[in-house]
């Protein structure tokens, strides 16, 4: 596909769009999981995000997008010292990918033609400082999942081959999408995603008509359609940049910290990751909305996305996790 569908032109699906925008404001939120029905624009939104993200500054030609010349790993031969602006990488991790493609491997071509051992970086290197997108994440092979978990936890990719030990930073926002009917996600991987979103096809008939209308306009005349929506996308990008700038100075009142902790205790979510993510997401949301400090309303808005995938399954409670989070939010935050 030449140009992805514009982000701003996606009809509805506000929770999904918000979650993606928040990770752009604060990458430490740690990824988004989008689960839902077929044909609801999951992959469209992620691919659209790529066009929307503000560019990053990196050393020209660096395989791991290093921000400064001194950060370039020693195995990479980067002649240039120039810092250039390049689009935030959004790397697709296809389902059938091999381990070598993910972590990188020795360059077979150079070994054969010149008898040299040279490292050929993989997808993790390319995704550094950007996004790694896995469609149908629930169908990913277990050993690739293990590998991703390991790298996501340490922020560093280590490859040992042919007597060479190669390491490079690999910090990325993990975005996964899938259809729950086709398989569950392992709890360990589930927990790695900061936010989780459930999408459904819009029930409202006018929204559905609008989806079809826009999609058709895009497919019939991509250039014209993109031109029409360019300004909207630009507006979102500007707002993301403003929110990023505002984030460090944003005040976090004691009461909000308490709210986050109480929510997590009431829901019985394991570990502290839930609290941290909830707080970070609430702060990013406050920055996005231009508030001077985080308020209870922000926590309330973001709590379902930040917590619904961290609940323990209760065999006696048939309600969906979204309902359970909603119920507890009502109880705790009043």
């Amino acid at each position: 596909m030449t140009q992805p569908f514009p982000f701003a032109a996606i009809v509805g699906q506000d929770e999904m769009k918000r979650a993606l925008i928040l990770t752009a404001i604060d990458p430490r939120i740690g990824g988004v999981l989008v689960f839902g029905d077929r044909g609801t624009g999951k992959s469209t939104a992620v691919r659209a995000l790529a066009a929307l993200l503000p560019p990053i500054r990196a050393v020209e030609g660096c395989p791991v997008n290093s921000p400064r010349p001194e950060d370039i790993p020693d195995w990479a031969q980067v002649p240039s010292r120039r810092i250039v602006s390049r689009p935030t990488p959004v790397i697709d991790l296809p389902l059938g990918v091999t381990e070598d493609r993910v972590v990188g491997a020795l360059d077979i071509e150079r070994a054969l033609t010149r008898g040299e051992k040279a490292f050929e970086p993989g997808l993790l290197a390319r995704a550094n400082r950007g996004y790694l997108y896995i469609d149908e994440v629930n169908l990913l092979e277990d050993h690739i999942v293990d590998l991703l978990l390991d790298v996501a936890a340490s922020g560093e990719n280590v490859v040992e081959r042919e007597g060479l030990s190669i390491r490079h930073p690999a910090r990325f926002v993990l975005v996964g999408s899938g259809n729950p009917e086709e398989g569950e996600l392992r709890p360990q991987l589930l927990d790695r995603f900061g936010l989780s979103v459930e999408v459904a096809s819009p029930k409202d008939i006018e929204a559905r008509i609008e989806v079809i209308r826009r999609r058709d306009a895009y497919e019939s005349d991509p250039e014209g359609f993109l031109r029409r929506w360019k300004r909207e996308d630009g507006r979102i990008r500007t707002r993301i940049l403003a929110a990023r700038a505002a984030l460090p100075a944003l005040a976090t009142p004691e009461a909000v910290l308490r709210d986050c902790a109480e929510l997590c205790v009431a829901l019985g979510s394991d570990g502290l990751r839930g609290e941290l993510t909830l707080l970070r997401a609430a702060r990013a949301l406050a920055a996005w909305e231009g508030a001077a400090e985080v308020a209870r309303a922000h926590v309330r808005t973001i709590a379902p996305s930040a917590l619904r995938h961290r609940l323990r399954r209760d065999p006696l409670d048939e309600a969906g996790s979204t309902v359970r989070v909603g119920r507890v939010v009502e109880e705790v935050l009043g």
Binding site: G39, S201, R208, I212
Partner: peptide, 8 residues
């Protein structure tokens, strides 16, 4: 028919 691909 729930999927939005179908009308398209």
């Amino acid at each position: 028919i729930g999927s939005l691909r179908t009308p398209l």
